[in-house]
Computed example of a mutant assay.
Amino acid sequence: MRTRISAIRIVLLAIILPGIASANAQLTTDFYIKSCPSVQSIVRNGMMVAVRNETRMAASILRLFFHDCFVQGCDASILLDDTSTMQGEKTAFPNANSVRGFEVVDAIKASVEQSCPGVVSCADILALAARDAVVLSGGPFWNVRLGRRDSLTASYSLANSNLPAPSEDIDTLISKFAAQGLSVSDLVTLSGAHTIGQSRCVNFRDRLYDYDGSAQPDSTLSAAYLAQLQNVCPSSGGDDNLAPLELTTPTRFDNIYYKNLLNGKGLLTSDQELFSSNQTSTVSVVQNYAASSRSFFTNFPTSMIAMGNISPLTGSNGEVRINCRVIN
């Protein structure tokens, strides 16, 4: 029976994997070279304005792209508003009162539509904006692969189940990344996006007062950092109080995030688990990135490209939305 199941799996993989490879092959860095040659400069200028107005927006856009790709693939489904017949992803637990930057994408999309009407997908705009968010924060540049189409649906249920949570342990994180075709190295590398941005008190309060139901703080937190966080986040109330995800250089994309993990200064459980869980496969990568910003900067684009390749809609699949919030 086991042999038969294995044979079925091999057949299924033979059918599915070429389709995935074909879809990824259709994504190219020069997809709009003739149809909308100005798209990259338009997106970059829009992100420059957004980050100049609010530095935190770089992290918000980067996170928006991440939360899009982990649900149905990188298809701009997270940008869809609820309708009478569809509950979208914006109000799912990991996104409600959390993901932001929709108005920035709207503004960039409007500018792109003025220059190239009906040509550039919202999914591609979000992918480009995420790259520019990193660059504008001092991080590495990479050539974004383009050619995605926008989905006609969103999934509230998948947003609740697929997205990693700030309180999850290392095994769960590894499993959720693997489900998207991403490696353990991708997990650690993409977590480095937390070198910029902020998080709400509600996401880390349990670590400060009642970790894992112990009525005690998380022992992996450094004492000084614990005291600092307790000043920001009381044991009750203040759910929306913000703390930087990386306390040393919170608006600059660098490798300090990993150095902080070595010293018990990861803000979220999901951050500190990369090192304090003693999972050899993640600890070694954290140590490498803490020692070498060059290594982190080299690998981050590779992992971002891998994430951007999650189940893209291409060709006749999906559409190019005129308004990112609603299907045409």
Rank of each mutant, 00 (worst) to 15 (best):
D169L: 00
D171A: 11
D171L: 04
T172F: 00
L173R: 00
S175I: 00
K176L: 01
F177S: 00
F177G: 02
A178K: 08
A178S: 13
A178N: 11
A178F: 02
A179Y: 02
A179H: 04
Q180R: 12
G181H: 03
G181R: 05
G181D: 02
L182V: 10
S183H: 03
V184A: 09
V184E: 08
V184G: 03
S185T: 14
S185V: 13
D186S: 10
D186I: 05
L187E: 08
L187D: 06
T189V: 13
T189A: 12
L190S: 06
S191D: 03
G192V: 11
A193D: 03
A193I: 08
A193C: 02
H194N: 14
H194L: 01
T195D: 07
T195F: 05
I196N: 07
I196C: 05
G197H: 02
Q198V: 10
R200I: 02
R200W: 01
C201A: 07
V202T: 11
N203S: 11
D206S: 15
D206A: 15
R207Q: 11
R207S: 09
R207L: 11
Y209E: 02
Y209N: 03
Y209R: 05
D210S: 13
Y211V: 06
D212S: 13
D212H: 09
G213I: 08
Q216M: 15
P217H: 10
P217E: 06
D218Y: 11
S219H: 09
L221I: 06
L221P: 09
S222F: 03
A223S: 15
A223V: 14
A223E: 13
A224G: 12
L226S: 09
A227L: 14
A227K: 14
L229E: 07
Q230V: 10
Q230I: 09
N231W: 02
V232E: 04
V232L: 14
P234W: 10
P234G: 14
P234C: 14
S235M: 14
G237T: 12
G238P: 11
D239M: 13
N241G: 08
N241M: 04
L242I: 07
P244L: 01
E246D: 15
E246C: 09
L247H: 14
L247C: 04
T249A: 15
P250G: 04
P250Y: 04
T251Q: 14
T251A: 12
D254N: 15
N255D: 10
N255R: 08
Y257I: 03
Y258Q: 06
N260W: 04
L261G: 06
N263I: 01
N263Y: 05
G264W: 05
G264C: 07
G264P: 07
G264L: 04
K265L: 00
K265F: 00
G266R: 06
G266M: 02
L268G: 00
L268S: 03
T269F: 01
S270A: 15
D271H: 12
D271E: 10
D271S: 12
Q272M: 06
